[in-house]
């Protein structure tokens, strides 16, 4: 098949025009040998592409565990806050933030965004305390006045029930109001 470098056929049409009309098969395409040849090639390409789409390609079985290992290693490298106990157990602030954001997301019309977790000044080995600044976006139509209290309640509950640390101060910052 003679396709010129800029893909214009001798009849004046280009390959893309033939592609766009591939299922129409108009008078020109039927009678023009150049267009007919290109159309045939494109049909082969389309069939091969369908095969490519159908081809099952499974990622290696250990890819998920490798990703999770990388995430855990990353969490270990980042900032940590102490957990209650002997003072040896620590938890990544990212992990704390993930749990707290998830708790806030459970409230209708509320979407958690940034979550900054720091160890509070009054924190001690026997009684670790954290401070949190949680930025949220709200959907105006869905959010009621009780929603903020609900976010506060759920985040505090998640901190104590799911992580086991005392949350001394929770700053809620509404950073964005979304259209319903």
């Amino acid at each position: 098949m003679a396709v010129t470098s800029d893909y214009v056929l001798p009849c004046g049409r280009d390959v893309e025009e033939v592609w766009e009309a591939i299922d129409l098969s108009d008078e020109h395409t039927r009678s023009c040998p150049h267009c007919a040849a290109v159309r045939e090639s494109l049909l082969v390409l389309r069939a091969a592409t369908d095969e490519l789409v159908r081809e099952e390609v499974e990622p290696p079985f250990d890819l998920v565990s490798r990703v999770m290992a990388a995430v855990r290693a990353d969490a270990r490298r980042s900032d940590v806050v102490p957990l209650p106990g002997d003072g040896l157990a620590r938890i990544s602030t990212r992990a704390v933030a993930a749990v707290l954001r998830y708790a806030a997301d459970g409230v209708d019309g509320v979407r958690a965004r940034a979550c900054r977790v720091t160890e509070a000044l009054e924190s001690t080995v026997s009684d670790p305390v954290i401070e949190v600044e949680l930025t949220i976006a709200i959907t105006a139509d869905l959010v009621t006045h009780q929603a903020y209290d609900e976010v506060r309640r759920r985040v505090l509950a998640a901190a104590s029930a799911r992580i086991g640390v005392r949350l001394a101060r929770l700053d809620l910052v509404v950073a964005d109001v979304l259209e319903g």
Binding site: A37, L42, L45
Partner: peptide, 16 residues
């Protein structure tokens, strides 16, 4: 995309 498609079609031509 147009260039890719034209090039690929050219390679697939022997299977017409």
């Amino acid at each position: 995309l147009a260039r890719a498609r034209a090039q690929l079609a050219e390679v697939m031509a022997p299977w017409r």
